[in-house]
Design a protein around this nucleic acid. Structure first.
Lengths: 144, 144
DNA sequence: ATGCAATAATTAGTAGACGAATTGTTGGGC
DNA sequence: GCCCAACAATTCGTCTACTAATTATTGCAT
């Protein structure tokens, strides 16, 4: 197997793997009774870790577009999990916070997410992780 | 770095990498004047390789849902790139074919896609590819 | 042969991705 | 002080993902 004949498949493999992880995570969240999508979880996680983050910061950190972040935050606000607070000194911005209901949800959902992560990584080890990071970063950089 | 402290990030890394590849490919296709999305390309590629494939087969092979395939094929049919032919002996099915315009498009777009693939893989080698496949397959299997 | 479960495709509804354009707002240069 | 480029967020339009439900058809079992 030369990589010329076969690495055609790397896009496909990454694509199917991420889908599988997303599906597994979504399924667990839904079965555990959470009304949360994977992407909604990702934003909640970031807001918990950086209280008061702005939407643009959030977009950068999660590699989502600003309009996408707007829509997800809209949904989370409707569900009462996130609040948009006025940003001191800049009326264009919002500072995002979890409501107490949002924090509760975060703390309850976290173990489920952690389990899925552990399950996915399985018995792969540190050396595997280093290969993984090196290869992914390399592909990423090749497009930057 | 123990993997316990850090492999939390693998979902994120896969997610951002696949986004980057998709964006690069989409950009190249668009700049080259093709009215094609990445997913539309993927279906065309499969139909070219297996003329007469059914929509369900296509869904399985690409890991897309049947409704998604229906919609993408609708679009490709409207653009005159794909034809739905009646399947002999089963009126529920369609056999999918590229039109001559579809074949032309395929052959013109292929080099662009191949370039992007090469660019993404860069100077990674066969050994890297083997690690990559092993790790991705392992994660995939851990959810199966 | 009839009935019924499985199958192929579609429709409908919600969510997310992305690009382009828009609305306010801010701050630097003059 | 005023203009204008940059910025934060939003709106709009198109496309894809996934679930659930529906339609039409098929084939197996009795």
């Amino acid at each position: 197997m030369t990589h010329h004949s076969d690495h055609r498949a790397y896009f496909f493999k990454i694509d199917t793997t991420i889908k599988k992880i997303r599906n597994a995570l979504q399924k667990q969240l839904t079965e555990a009774g959470f009304d949360l999508t994977v992407d909604q979880w990702v934003l909640i996680d970031h807001i918990f870790r950086k209280q008061g983050i702005s939407q643009n910061e959030l977009a950068e950190m999660t590699f989502k577009d600003p309009p996408t972040v707007t829509r997800i935050i809209d949904l989370l606000e409707k569900k009462g999990l996130v609040e948009r607070g006025a940003a001191a000194g800049d009326r264009r911005k919002f500072n995002l916070f979890l409501t107490s209901s949002g924090e509760t949800t975060y703390k309850q959902a976290f173990p489920i997410v952690a389990d899925i992560r552990r399950k996915g990584w399985g018995s792969l080890n540190d050396s595997d992780y280093q290969h993984f990071v090196r290869i992914m970063d390399s592909i990423y950089q090749n497009f930057t």
